[in-house]
């Protein structure tokens, strides 16, 4: 169980370590459910990042491996959604819970 958590954490921290991937997460926070084309448009037009579609695909694969991005098929299209749940591990690992208030248990 501990080993599993370490592996998951490694993927998570690796995913978050890259500025382009953090920008992708920012954009998915603004609007969940984007096609690869929309993500590429946002990176190139809004953030002026000269990045190929293949490179964006690879970044998305890393984010998906870390559980931060989920893909969903809807008819003929594929959409990417943000899943911030894995970030809870970071909070639970180091932040001491505030015992004075009501506590919420993690799933």
């Amino acid at each position: 169980m501990l080993a599993y958590c370490v592996v998951v954490a490694d993927d998570l921290f690796k995913a978050l370590a890259d500025p382009t991937r953090r920008t992708i997460l920012d954009e998915l926070t603004e609007k969940s459910g984007q096609t690869l084309f929309e993500i590429c448009s946002r990176l190139s037009m809004k953030h002026r990042l000269g990045i190929s579609r293949q490179a964006v695909s690879q970044h998305l694969a890393v984010l998906e491996a870390a559980g931060l991005v989920e893909t969903r098929r809807e008819g003929r299209y594929k959409f990417h959604d943000l899943n911030a749940a894995p970030l809870r591990q970071i909070v639970e690992r180091w932040l001491v819970p505030d015992t004075s208030g009501p506590q919420e248990s993690a799933p």
């Binding site: 096609t35 929309e38 448009s41 037009m45 299209y77």
Partner: peptide, 17 residues
Amino acid sequence: FTQEPLETGPVTTAVFD
């Protein structure tokens, strides 16, 4: 629409089926 209106600098785009 697979992409709702998106403002990127001077251009706004959207994508539909």
